[in-house]
Design a protein around this nucleic acid. Structure first.
Lengths: 220, 220
DNA sequence: AATGCAATCTACTCGCGAGTAGATTTTTGC
DNA sequence: GCAAAAATCTACTCGCGAGTAGATTGCATT
């Protein structure tokens, strides 16, 4: 047996700092994933800017310098592209929920933290897409999954409110209506926020939550 | 000359309480207008429910028991149908502006009145359509007109806030951000409000504005 | 009675864009 | 080296829905 061949199995592979033109399996998988994500990012930006129906997959492909079947290769059909985009946004929101849950402090503090993160996600590409995507755009099966995930976020918001009411740090005559009001205020930046404008996402989120916390009537 | 014929010109026309099968010119015009409005109402409801692109004019026509060219006869093309729908909603909002302006009282009271009316409009067929219609759905010329009218409403909201700040009845570190936050909260019912649900429009509007006035932090 | 206008229909055209077939080239695993 | 799999292209099909042509009917005005 050729000893040299065997040594390949027991030695560490040589460090690959300089990327070789012969990528290994892990690298190839990563490259594929990177392409997939590039397609999603290009798509979500065009969806947000021009609307889902006004964006053809040919447009998306062209903006990436590839042809339409390439998109089908990575993502299936147009519905799946959209579903994937909103799923990414929803995952970001879900993460905000978990961070808020894991937080120490009174109900109002955890709610405040969640609301700011929620607003920030809604000013980003994928979060915007969650807000702007009506259920009528998806095929029924995808729409059901979309609705279910949104429902989870909403329930989490509802429980954060309830906890605050329970520990006396939140005033809410009608928690359900409060949840809708907060969500609406913090969803709306998906339409108006401009990253090139005068405020950062963080400033905008912070300022909006301040308004919601204290209202616009003078403190008595 | 037959006297009876001449008398027609000088006498009042006989009262037409019972509608005759021979309508006069005014009645015909009114009937035409009624049909036009029926088309708009059917269209806006379908647009709100299923989305603009997912609603074909054949669908709208079918729901009224007529054929598609009839819609073209009354309203021109699909863009004009949509533009007309949003214009009706915007006119309702404009009226809310004027009512609020004409109101006596301090800045905060006039703002509050406006906000409630604004929310109520957004829970109605045409107001919903204003919120749900993105500019990308309209042909560029219509989009410009749409944007301009929305801008007017927004400016009016901004001045109401400014007046309240000036007379000391409103607290707003950043009036622009306050305006966006209020608008967002009160636009959102266009998505969630269900007339068949537990609250009336008035109750929902009142409750939301209460939240916005006082915030959810306990009064100090 | 004649002409014209209003209202409505049936039966088309036509373009756009989603989705696919199938060929071609590159990569890779053995 | 070679067969299989991955990546990508060109060049289609096909259905849907916006918009139109042109006929028909009926009422209205003179």
């Amino acid at each position: 047996m050729p000893v040299v061949r065997q040594s390949k199995a027991v030695n560490e592979p040589p460090a690959q700092n300089t990327k070789s033109p012969f990528p290994d399996a892990a690298q190839r998988k990563a490259a594929r994933e990177a392409k997939r994500e590039a397609v999603l990012l290009a798509a979500v930006r065009m969806f947000n800017e021009r609307g889902f129906h006004a964006t053809s997959l040919d447009d998306v492909a062209l903006s990436l310098g590839v042809s339409k079947p390439t998109i089908y290769h990575y993502l299936g059909n147009k519905d799946q592209v959209l579903l994937e985009c909103v799923s990414i946004g929803l995952a970001q929101l879900q993460q905000a929920v978990e961070e808020a849950r894991a937080r120490p402090g009174a109900g109002i503090d955890r709610l405040r933290y969640f609301l700011e993160r929620y607003a920030q996600v809604n000013m980003d590409d994928f979060g915007r897409c969650v807000i702007r995507t009506g259920e009528e755009l998806l095929v029924p099966a995808s729409a059901a999954s979309f609705r279910a995930k949104k429902r989870e976020i909403d329930d989490a918001l509802r429980s954060l409110i309830d906890e605050g009411v329970a520990d006396g740090t939140i005033t809410a005559p009608d928690p359900r209506l409060l949840a809708f009001t907060l969500a609406g205020a913090l969803n709306w930046p998906a339409r108006w926020f401009d990253p090139a404008g005068p405020m950062t996402r963080e400033e905008a989120a912070h300022g909006m939550v301040d308004v919601l916390l204290h209202g616009f009537a003078p403190r008595s």
